[in-house]
Design a protein around this nucleic acid. Sequence first.
DNA 1: GCAATTCAAATGAATTAGCACTTATATTTA
DNA 2: TAAATATAAGTGCTAATTCATTTGAATTGC
Lengths: 154, 154
Amino acid sequence: MEIPSPPSGVRFIDDYLVYLLARAAHQVSSEFHEQLRRRGISVAVWRVLSALIGSEGETVTGLAEICLLQQPTMTKLLDRMARSGLVCRSPDQRDRRVVRVGLTAAGRAMAEDLALAAKAHEADLLARHPPAEAEAIKNLLRSILARHDRPRRG
Amino acid sequence: MEIPSPPSGVRFIDDYLVYLLARAAHQVSSEFHEQLRRRGISVAVWRVLSALIGSEGETVTGLAEICLLQQPTMTKLLDRMARSGLVCRSPDQRDRRVVRVGLTAAGRAMAEDLALAAKAHEADLLARHPPAEAEAIKNLLRSILARHDRPRRG
DNA sequence: GCAATTCAAATGAATTAGCACTTATATTTA
DNA sequence: TAAATATAAGTGCTAATTCATTTGAATTGC
């Protein structure tokens, strides 16, 4: 059987909020992700580093939640990052189930270096919008985050 | 060495646009993704099905771009979906390098069924915002997409 | 009209993620 | 306080993703 090219009409996804958000997130980050690729740093590693900037001592589960990953995925990611000398784990004093994650000197240097590049990229992104809109974007996103905070999820 | 709990101050990521977008996208879709999980349908499969609604005949590379995946990932995903009888491939008549992808009857039924659930979920999401804001969200996202459309990417 | 280049899709090897489960520690409650 | 339940992190297996490459077809330039 033969399939013609897609019609030029409106696709389902073009008016579907969840898709618009996913696409915007992907598109907006793609330039910075290419910078990471050039430096040989994976997006997952950058997410962990950035999550720890100004917030060292997060737990494994906490980092997984922040980085939008499963906990076992984070455990293994941290294994690799510890092996490459970017993070260190240490047991919590009060609760021995808990592992707290910190940056090594090398990890902190890399994190801060990348954060500068990330902020420069962000300024560049926002400069493409009229000032009022640029202002509105983050506020709207924070409003979305506040209104759709899920009770709790793995 | 000992690592204290993270300070309660402002984390880097809490004011970082790319993260806010990624988090919003994740959070907003999580409820629907749970619905998918309950039905035993993966997010990737849903993305392909939804991409084909009203737009059958997309190419493999085109679908990869729409679904925010790499082309080889899409090839293998389509292999699996064809095996489970959701999509069919057929060679383009004009250009024999191109493969056009269509839905089978079962695939179309599943796509339309899920699209109803997706739209219901979307209505539910938007109802949590004041009407003016709900109106603004999609427009703002479309503005972002328009302004940050990348030239071309794998 | 042929060689070189571009482009679409597929393939294979290696890496990574996800799911279900285990282990160890805390907390609850009877 | 003992037993039951809950929580944090790690493990093992399977499956999916990626990167680099290959194959086959179309386009371009000479």
